[in-house]
């Protein structure tokens, strides 16, 4: 029962959704619409599960005084304070009926004052690591690394005013070699070719995996044991 029922659920949901995609009338379409709604709702519960899991892990770390446990207190306090502010719309000018991110609300402050600067700075750190990765790739001196970095440089320079300025001296007959034009050509043709090959490959992989899941051949998502 612990493994068979989930397999039956997966099969029914998968078959109904695939059929509902092609049969746009009658009960299959109704079920397709309903299951789409249910699917969206259940996936939101995954956020709640994520929050619960975060609480569980950090409470365990605090109670067992694990290494760096004071930082877990920071996570717990930040999580609980933001959650209370968000769920009860604390400081929201429109009260419980107001927009969740209404201007002037405390959650808006958390978003603009804490979440935004933290996420933007976290991601901007990558600029430094990317620079070091490029340096290492240059040192590798393989043909593939050279192609990758040459394409990246053309795109980087071609999409900025400095690229246009650098190649503005070129005669009209060689205009296609100007960096902005070269960048546009790379984006439109070789880049599209590579993207398309990847997309077709992924599509075939997704189709095969979806079929394996629906037919119960692929069961890894159920985990091990009973």
């Amino acid at each position: 029962m612990r493994r068979r029922i989930p397999l039956i659920i997966t099969f029914i949901i998968g078959v109904v959704l695939i059929t509902g995609y092609f049969v746009t009338r009658g009960p299959f379409n109704t079920l397709y619409e309903s299951f789409s709604d249910y699917f969206a709702i259940i996936t939101v519960f995954a956020f709640i599960l994520g929050g619960g899991s975060l609480l569980k892990i950090h409470l365990k770390r605090v109670s067992s005084r694990a290494a760096d446990w004071p930082y877990s207190v920071v996570t717990l306090v930040a999580f609980l304070v933001t959650l209370v502010i968000g769920l009860f719309k604390v400081g929201n000018p429109g009260g419980m009926g107001g927009e969740i991110l209404a201007s002037g609300s405390w959650l808006r402050f958390m978003f603009d004052g804490v979440y935004n600067p933290l996420s933007a700075t976290m991601f901007s750190l990558l600029a430094f690591f990317v620079a070091s990765a490029s340096y290492r790739a240059f040192r590798a001196r393989t043909k593939e690394a050279t192609i990758l970095l040459s394409a990246a440089m053309v795109i980087l320079l071609g999409r900025t005013p400095v690229g246009a300025w650098l190649t503005a001296w070129m005669p009209e007959s060689l205009a296609f070699l100007e960096l902005p034009n070269l960048a546009n050509w790379i984006m439109a043709w070789p880049n599209t070719a590579g993207q398309r090959a990847i997309m077709i490959g992924i599509a075939l992989g997704v189709i095969a995996t979806s079929l394996r899941i629906i037919l119960g051949i692929e069961r890894n998502y159920l985990g091990r044991g009973e």
């Binding site: 956020f47 709640i48 994520g50 929050g51 975060l54 930082y71 877990s72 920071v74 996570t75 717990l76 306090v77 930040a78 999580f79 609980l80 304070v81 933001t82 959650l83 502010i85 968000g86 769920l87 969740i100 991110l101 959650l107 958390m110 978003f111 804490v114 979440y115 933290l118 996420s119 976290m122």
Partner: peptide
Amino acid sequence: HLFVGVSAAYLMAV
């Protein structure tokens, strides 16, 4: 750690 706590709760609330 602040980022982890705030972002998890923010996504949950939204």
